[in-house]
Computed example of a mutant assay.
Amino acid sequence: MRREYSGGGSLSRLSQEFGTFGPLSAQPEPWLTAELDQHAAAVRDSITSGGGLLGRRSLAEYLHGFIDGCRERGWHTGNDGYDWETLRLLAICRLARDRGFVH
């Protein structure tokens, strides 16, 4: 990732920001698809493991909690490439798009 993004807004806004420079608007390379699939599965499992449903609200709550945790650890978005946190954020955005929570 060469450009910083705010990471503090809504699920829709974050998805739009990633869509402008991330691999969400095109077919990513196979290695990236595999990484995003693994992260998406982990997010789904985290939300649904206690009997919760994967919905717009639960995904947005997960997103905000994840970003808060990233900030507490001192992570920032100015990294080049795809670190673990960026991959998780991309997976959250892809889940939101694939489930129809954002357009």
Rank of each mutant, 00 (worst) to 15 (best):
50 G>A: 07
9 G>P: 06
43 V>A: 05
71 R>T: 15
50 G>R: 04
43 V>C: 02
40 A>Y: 08
55 G>N: 11
85 E>R: 00
71 R>Q: 14
33 T>A: 15
14 L>K: 01
13 R>M: 03
65 G>T: 13
21 F>Y: 13
31 W>Q: 05
42 A>L: 06
23 P>C: 15
57 R>K: 12
46 S>V: 07
89 L>Q: 00
48 T>Q: 08
56 R>E: 13
86 T>G: 00
64 H>K: 00
64 H>D: 06
70 C>F: 05
16 Q>F: 15
33 T>N: 12
47 I>V: 13
48 T>C: 12
65 G>Y: 09
48 T>F: 04
28 P>I: 11
44 R>H: 09
17 E>D: 13
14 L>C: 06
8 G>R: 06
18 F>D: 09
83 D>W: 01
17 E>V: 06
33 T>D: 15
19 G>F: 04
24 L>T: 13
34 A>P: 00
9 G>E: 12
53 L>Y: 02
90 L>T: 05
41 A>Y: 08
59 L>V: 05
13 R>Q: 01
89 L>D: 06
61 E>M: 08
71 R>F: 13
44 R>W: 04
64 H>A: 10
72 E>K: 14
64 H>Y: 01
81 G>M: 02
19 G>W: 01
52 G>F: 01
17 E>W: 07
39 H>G: 09
59 L>Q: 01
34 A>I: 09
69 G>M: 08
49 S>M: 10
59 L>S: 04
24 L>S: 14
79 N>D: 13
75 W>L: 01
71 R>S: 15
69 G>P: 04
86 T>R: 05
54 L>V: 13
71 R>P: 03
41 A>P: 00
91 A>Y: 04
86 T>Y: 10
69 G>K: 06
91 A>S: 08
74 G>L: 10
28 P>W: 03
50 G>L: 04
70 C>P: 05
79 N>E: 12
19 G>K: 03
91 A>L: 08
70 C>K: 03
67 I>E: 12
82 Y>G: 10
77 T>F: 01
41 A>Q: 13
59 L>F: 00
42 A>C: 06
29 E>S: 05
81 G>D: 06
69 G>H: 09
56 R>P: 05
62 Y>D: 11
58 S>M: 01
42 A>K: 03
44 R>E: 12
20 T>Q: 14
55 G>C: 11
56 R>T: 08
58 S>C: 07
73 R>V: 04
39 H>C: 14
36 L>G: 08
87 L>R: 07
80 D>F: 11
49 S>N: 07
79 N>G: 11
87 L>G: 02
71 R>A: 15
10 S>C: 10
71 R>E: 15
23 P>I: 15
57 R>Q: 10
77 T>I: 00
87 L>S: 09
43 V>D: 00
15 S>F: 02
68 D>V: 04
26 A>W: 02
45 D>G: 13
